[in-house]
């Protein structure tokens, strides 16, 4: 079994329900995110559109975070999930430097690395990840990519899929339908500091407990 995740960006409407559900389910502290939805505005008024892209851990088959972790705090589960053992993590931040997707953060409460685990605790009980359950338009599809009859496999077979930064050779197990460069490539859009929609947060001043 190799669990994978697919987001149909044609369906996503940027409601951020998945973000909130993830935060609640995993008790993610303020200022930290396991999953987030990035908004990118494209074009010039009046010909503009807004794109929404949920971003989370890609659970790579060849995960750089797992490779660089000096104490195996980041490890593979049999179902392909890249899991993290926070009790073992020493907080070296090597995984943060290694992840090409910016999916790992330093938990300011535990001072250890943390990230999306595809809700491994729920999956082990036969439940879907909380973000999948919360999505009102079923844009999130989760399942076994080795089972050709699974919903995710059927979806992959009938749509054009993309992954983020395939050139890194990490073989992500997180797929996107309807994604373009703007959605998936951070260099394809400009970040103007202080010009966000609902806030003016730009950079975190401190990372974890190093105050």
């Amino acid at each position: 079994m190799k669990l994978g995740f697919l987001v149909d960006l044609n369906l996503c409407m940027g409601c951020k329900g998945c973000e909130v559900a993830c935060k609640v389910e995993n008790e993610v502290p303020i200022s930290s995110w396991r999953l987030r939805v990035k908004y990118v505005d494209v074009g010039v008024f009046p010909d503009t559109k807004r794109t929404f892209t949920p971003l989370r851990c890609n659970h790579c088959e060849d995960a750089p975070c797992e490779r660089i972790c000096p104490v195996s705090a980041l490890h593979y589960l049999d179902n392909g999930i890249v899991n993290i053992d926070k009790d073992r993590c020493i907080g070296c931040a090597g995984c943060i430097m290694a992840c090409p997707y910016g999916a790992i953060y330093m938990d300011p409460e535990t001072n250890t690395a943390d990230k999306c685990t595809y809700c491994a605790h729920r999956v082990s009980s036969g439940l879907m990840p909380s973000c999948v359950v919360a999505c009102p338009v079923e844009a999130n599809i989760f399942g076994d990519t080795e089972d050709v009859t699974s919903g995710i496999s059927q979806y992959i077979m009938s749509h054009n899929i993309k992954v983020r930064k395939p050139e890194k050779g990490t073989f992500p197990k997180h797929y996107y339908v309807g994604g373009g460069e703007i959605n998936l490539n951070p260099l394809a859009s400009v970040r103007k500091e202080g010009h966000q929609l609902f806030n003016n947060i730009t950079h975190l001043k401190f990372i974890g407990g190093h105050h």
């Binding site: 995110w33 990035k38 990118v40 430097m97 330093m106 859009s189 001043k205 990372i207």
Partner: peptide, 14 residues
């Protein structure tokens, strides 16, 4: 032109 209009805070220097 593509501009990020909403995202979480970037982690800064690790």
């Amino acid at each position: 032109q593509a501009v990020v209009t909403l995202d979480v805070a970037l982690p800064g220097i690790v």
